[in-house]
């Protein structure tokens, strides 16, 4: 009993996602400073990586010449319309698969068959079907958003707590009420995390579609810069895409925090 007292070692904690503001920003800043320092000292040659400050200057030019919005607005329009079509159809089909065994039996193999097709490879087909202009781009983006959304949605519907559904039935709720008030809200977390992935895929496909045939758009801008080996402009375009990705992720995060406040 003469052993010295020692406090019990803490070994709990962790494994919980916490909000830490500013850390993400710090990572970006540190990487940029490293690149700036490397290119200035000659540690990184100008051919390998453009200097971040030069990219910033290019970006400024782009903004001042008014070309930024000339490229950005058509791109955003394509992204929003295409992703909205794809996500809407995807969520609808996913819910149908989740609710009806017949839809599941018929559509799950089909979805599995089209999931691994690189959608970019189908662009010529879409051009034939929908014409060279905007429709084919919407279709490509929508198609690419559709498949991951379907899979995420029906998995989310499958995961809704069955005891809650039995509860709804035992209180005599109508089928519509059960779907609208129990199944859909219960599937919401899974649907939102599916959207995180499918919207990112939509950005990738946006660029691909614009590279193949568009006068304006971020993809077209990057393609032009790339064919001239103009690394500053290429990177300015890439930065826009990255910012777009961060914005999409941020928007979904904000929606999740609002809609999923009830989660423990």
């Amino acid at each position: 009993m003469s052993d010295p007292a020692r406090s019990v070692e803490f070994r709990g904690g962790g494994f919980v996602a916490q909000r830490k503001r500013g850390v993400g920003l710090m990572v970006f800043i540190v990487l940029l400073l490293l690149a700036e320092w490397g290119t200035r000292t000659g540690f990184i040659s100008a051919l390998t990586l453009p200097r971040p400050s030069d990219v910033l200057l290019t970006f400024q030019e782009l903004y001042q010449s008014g070309m930024l919005f000339k490229h950005l607005i058509p791109s955003l329009t394509r992204l929003v319309i295409g992703a909205a079509i794809g996500a809407t159809i995807g969520i609808t089909v996913g819910v149908l698969i989740g609710l009806f065994s017949l839809a599941r039996a018929g559509l799950v193999p089909l979805v599995a068959a089209i999931f691994p097709i690189p959608k970019i490879a189908l662009l010529p087909l879409f051009v034939i079907w929908f014409g060279i202009d905007e429709m084919s781009k919407y279709a490509l983006i929508a198609f690419g958003t559709f498949t991951p959304t379907v899979v995420a949605t029906y998995a989310a519907v499958d995961n809704v707590d069955r005891t809650l559904i039995r509860m709804g039935q035992s209180f005599g709720l109508s089928w519509r009420s059960i779907v609208a008030k129990i199944v859909l809200p219960g599937a919401m977390p899974g649907i939102l995390s599916g959207l995180r992935i499918s919207l990112t895929i939509a950005i990738i496909l946006l660029v691909a579609a614009e590279m193949l045939g568009a006068e304006y758009g971020i993809g077209a801008y990057i393609l032009q810069a790339g064919s001239l080996y103009d690394l500053e402009r290429l990177f300015a375009g890439v930065v826009i895409l990255s910012v777009l990705g961060v914005v999409v992720s941020g928007v979904i995060g904000a929606v999740e925090r609002r809609v999923l406040r009830w989660r423990v």
Partner: peptide, 18 residues
């Protein structure tokens, strides 16, 4: 009487979002 046969469940079965 709106629902003649009504359950009370062991695990409560409350909707967490309401």
């Amino acid at each position: 009487c709106l629902n003649p046969l009504t359950y009370i469940f062991q695990d409560f079965a409350l909707l967490p979002w309401r």
